[in-house]
Design a protein around this nucleic acid. Sequence first.
DNA 1: CTGAAAGCGCTTACAG
DNA 2: CTGAAAGCGCTTACAG
Lengths: 327, 327
Amino acid sequence: MSNIREVAQAAGVSVATVSRALTNPEKVSEESLKKVHDAIQAVGYRPNLLARNFRAAKSFAIVVLVPDITNPFFSQVIQAIEDRAQQKGYAVLLGDTRETSKREQDYVNRVETRLADGVIQLRPHSMSSGRERIPWVNACGCEDTPGPSIRVDNAGATKTIVDYMISLGHKRIGVISGLKENPHTIDRLRGYKMALEAAGIPFEKELVIEGDFTMWSGQNAATQFFALSKMPTAICCMNDEMALGAIQTIKGRGLRVPEDISVTGFDDITYSKYWDPGLTTMAQPAEEIGKLAMDTLLRVIEGEDLSTSEIVLPTELIIRKSTCRPR
Amino acid sequence: MSNIREVAQAAGVSVATVSRALTNPEKVSEESLKKVHDAIQAVGYRPNLLARNFRAAKSFAIVVLVPDITNPFFSQVIQAIEDRAQQKGYAVLLGDTRETSKREQDYVNRVETRLADGVIQLRPHSMSSGRERIPWVNACGCEDTPGPSIRVDNAGATKTIVDYMISLGHKRIGVISGLKENPHTIDRLRGYKMALEAAGIPFEKELVIEGDFTMWSGQNAATQFFALSKMPTAICCMNDEMALGAIQTIKGRGLRVPEDISVTGFDDITYSKYWDPGLTTMAQPAEEIGKLAMDTLLRVIEGEDLSTSEIVLPTELIIRKSTCRPR
DNA sequence: CTGAAAGCGCTTACAG
DNA sequence: CTGAAAGCGCTTACAG
């Protein structure tokens, strides 16, 4: 492992000149530049960026906190973040929290100990302590998520999709929600109620069944609908994966989607398009969310005060084959 | 941002004692320990790990190179890697290469410049230069992948699944492969040919259609089978996503899976279980691969020579509803 | 344009 | 058990 001193020696210049040749070549004479470059070749020098970063007191890394990297929606957002980060010379540290606050804290520690310059939180919860002291942006947040925040209008988007079901003629509309305390669940449930109210349909508690955003929970929740004295004619799920699981169960019970029961999702993951039937859902702009989250974090790291900044991105109703008029 | 000197001052001890209190408390008297801890509280000290790592000449980070984080199989492996890394105090830098060698090189640079201690390559290709000089392990490699390597027996596993189709009575068995030059494609194709040969079935070139491991390419490839004068009775796909895409197309054409055409995959991603019909496939131990890859890399980083080490993990044939006897 | 020197925040022989 | 000092590999005023 050669260092800058060896290069300087080999080039017959000072370490300062080598350093400048590397970072501010315009401040160095042609002649020195050449000597330095030749010397670098000769000794096989690679700069120690750990030293550089230490001195600059910047790690040029950010951590992204994600509840589950395996979730296709999140992995799309992360891909966009990574893409942007790479362009800007930042590394992304993967912080799969598995929904535990201990792991989350471990990763927050990394920025407190200068191993990362900031964090992007993909988890809707905002329970983190220490948020204030650290460059931080929330992507995929909710209405009450403190800024800077990049998000969609969860309530509004849910209202739109439920409005659509109502416009199709559905009156008894079930919901498979996320965990009750999850902020997304709260916002989206509000949208559901808004749509019902606007249409004069009374809210029935038994029509809301709790899931946890996994396919398995979607299956499970769908099963519970079958126990109801009167089945809903449509089920709106708070994400695509639960919708896919629900469809599976409904078909397994011998009913047809959408003829017997319409099903909708939220996110528009890749699989939803290929499912049988194709899933009607609310598309979130995953790539845009990731890109903007990274850009925003960079601005915060540079010292801008974006604490009241909130970007609300549009969603899009994607109508496919899992919905139709009720019989 | 307080530093160790301020703590020393506040505690009335030397910086050396503070440092020891933090990293070798057994070498410090009870009394000093207490003074240091109180001082740390008082000044709100957080150690600068960037400095620590710089001095130790270790970054305690590794990069994982993945062709596409969005692929559920890879994201499972990464989750396992991250889990293990976190336990061992390492960070994982996400290196989504998007199949470009430039991006791959960018990430390899990170370890050459000391920003990472090693790399785990999830991409089957082994075209990287500089592999030798760097702690490196291949996960998901192939037979000719240089060690250290964690992988499955791709040829053998493919033979097993094709054997199974043959045992069901299929004789005209199509293949949707990955890109022709992809090492996985090569190994798995070999397994297919081995099975055919063992059963005395002649290999027909037209029955192998090239995909690229995406659902879309599976759909596309399936369409091409319909152009054949005689359709196969079974299609073995080189991964699950192409199989799911193929099933979609086949059903869209009005044929039934498996009654009219059997379809198999490879990987056993979560969605395959929930698909309609459930996909018969070859399960890879994603979690085990990730865990072992991380453990192996750690050993290499510590200086062990594992360059000839190769761990071949077992796969498991998962029989679901997408396969049956031909009519 | 160039070099000598200080310093970033730690750790660790070394001497006591 | 403790402290003074050197040093990790860089960058950057400062002086020339």
